[in-house]
């Protein structure tokens, strides 16, 4: 965590440079809300709905599991961090925003979901969970470095808003990277998405962004 600010700034700027439109400078802005511009609790829930119970599940599960020697496992640093994160959502929500300008945004077919989607930045940012082979093309820039975004968040989650060339609507989607966990007798993967509502069963569900003008 010591080099988190450097990792975050380097990754964000590199991604923005790779997405430069050309003809104008790329600008990247980093801003912290601080407590003064935090989101009040009642409004923050719009962005946390469905996440808090999974944070709670991760927080309570780890220490409850017995170790191999039968002793109760200790809270480790990571578990403590998640437990604190689960409490954060009851408070005004402070945030960090990274904005870029003069860039293409997260381009690519939002419905593509192959094992590899060269050049599809939307896929690379939200759907690529395997290890990327560097140097394939621009999508390679969405390799392991992108995990700095959830890493930088105390609740291991971020939202991304993008407007792509030629489109009037913006797309909003989020990604949370926790740990595998159990809730109500069901097992869940480490990752979840903030996405448009969809009545499909989990086995059929394909996360899609929220569209908004």
């Amino acid at each position: 965590a010591a080099d988190m600010p450097e990792r975050l700034v380097r990754e964000a700027i590199q991604n923005s440079m790779d997405a430069a439109l050309g003809g104008e400078p790329v600008r990247v802005r980093f801003a912290f809300s601080g407590i003064d511009h935090s989101v009040p609790t009642h409004r923050a829930m719009d962005y946390l709905n469905g996440l808090t119970e999974h944070l709670d599940a991760v927080a309570v599960e780890q220490p409850a599991r017995p170790r191999d020697d039968g002793a109760a496992s200790q809270f480790n640093d990571e578990t403590q961090a998640v437990y604190r994160a689960a409490r954060l959502v009851d408070q005004p929500l402070e945030w960090l925003v990274v904005e870029d300008f003069g860039t293409r945004g997260l381009t690519g077919n939002i419905k593509a979901n192959g094992a590899n989607e060269p050049g599809n930045n939307f896929w690379g940012f939200f759907r690529q969970f395997g290890i990327s082979t560097k140097g394939e093309d621009a999508a390679g820039s969405w390799g392991l470095g992108k995990w700095v975004f959830p890493d930088a968040s105390q609740i291991n989650a971020f939202l991304a808003l993008t407007r792509r060339p030629g489109e009037t609507e913006s797309l909003l989607m989020g990604l949370a990277i926790l740990k595998t966990h159990e809730r109500d007798g069901r097992r869940y993967p480490a990752y979840g998405h903030y996405a448009a509502s969809d009545p499909a069963a989990d086995s059929e569900w394909f996360q899609l962004p929220v569209r908004s003008s």
């Binding site: 946390l48 469905g50 996440l51 999974h54 869940y188 979840g192 448009a196 509502s197 086995s203 569900w205």
Partner: peptide, 18 residues
């Protein structure tokens, strides 16, 4: 309303990642 969602793991996924 948009919201966070985690898809329940399938038996095959659990076997791969217990």
């Amino acid at each position: 309303t948009p919201h966070w969602r985690f898809a329940e793991m399938t038996p095959a996924q659990i076997a791969e990642n217990p």
